[in-house]
Design a protein around this nucleic acid. Sequence first.
DNA 1: CCTGGATATTCAACGCTGATGAATAAAAAC
DNA 2: GTTTTTATTCATCAGCGTTGAATATCCAGG
Lengths: 210, 210
Amino acid sequence: MNKNRGRPRGRPATKARIAEKARALFLAHGYQGTTLRAVAAAADVDVALIGYHFGSKQGLFGEAMNIDCGRSTAIVRALDGDPAYLAERLVDAVTALWEEPDGAGFAALEPVAMRDEDVMRVFREFLEREVLGRIADHLGGRHARERATAAVAVLGGLIFTRYLNPLGPVVALDAADVRRILAPALRAALHGRTVPVRAHRLPARLSRTA
Amino acid sequence: MNKNRGRPRGRPATKARIAEKARALFLAHGYQGTTLRAVAAAADVDVALIGYHFGSKQGLFGEAMNIDCGRSTAIVRALDGDPAYLAERLVDAVTALWEEPDGAGFAALEPVAMRDEDVMRVFREFLEREVLGRIADHLGGRHARERATAAVAVLGGLIFTRYLNPLGPVVALDAADVRRILAPALRAALHGRTVPVRAHRLPARLSRTA
DNA sequence: CCTGGATATTCAACGCTGATGAATAAAAAC
DNA sequence: GTTTTTATTCATCAGCGTTGAATATCCAGG
């Protein structure tokens, strides 16, 4: 009568394996693009076991993507340290600012923040004065303010797509992933590199598309 | 033999009625929250008729939301052409999308957009489905989705800091300036470069500050 | 007027999704 | 040694978007 049913022998870390495979699939294909059956197949497990361990797809998502952040620091302090990793520290500072564990982060005012004009103005001033201004001062040089503006645009993009108007694929990342994939862009913004190849021919080429 | 089947008498504007009801439902419940069967029921029509008129759910969304012509396709068209200037074309496509001269751009819904949860949701789905998905498909390769996510974060930053919650220094730029200072960041995001120097020492260095 | 294609509509089914209750086997508690 | 708790599979559900076929009306050519 016996099939593969019932509790298996030993203590296989099945739940952890499911979460691990789920995380990889969520990162690769996004939330909608990842089916529970695909996760179950990757973990070599029945679909129903996911429901047993995690309750629902959202429960699996929440647990698999569990943000491990436990950092708290201001943007300004990110300016100190090795200039080579300034971009990484700035990205980390933004994520840490929201995802502070003890409810002290900006995450508290997340849900309704977008509809409140006052909150948005606070935001604007924070980005413009605190972030942009300090970054520009720190960078120095001829085009410091332009480069700082680009950097703030990138950081604002992180804030916008992850917290204020959260996009699934951005939320799916943990803080380390965010740093990894966004730091290169922020570094390019900070360094203010121009077009690396054949820059002089750019405008003519682009005039048609724009 | 006759049922309710076949072409009805007269010239009922069925297609327009479907799009109209669909638009209301998309705004009320979002893309995922709106089922084709609900739309069909609201329009007093069979589900299959939607497929006949609009091809797919995405087609219905595009037509109902008027983002099919010259809007989402502007992003798609930017994908064609010299890969070396893909970043420039994408930045231009976003600015052009808002700053279309004849009032046809997104600028029309700008003032109230931020406070309207429904508009934001549509916007979110536009970014996630139309922009991120198409960029990921176009890039291909192993980390295509990650790189597309980074790119959308950068483009979202432009949208956020220039249009939705306008920051003075960003608004002060013209379209050419925006392209010049933001294209390097977007290019880095698209190429998905990792840390250029001493990458292996990164985690230890950051653990203190972050 | 008649006829034949083009058009618009419903019907019926498919394969897939996420979810759930029941059966079962091992482990843990008593 | 028995009972309870835990982990797992199986079988099935309703709902989803999509598709092929049937059917009724419109419209153009004779």
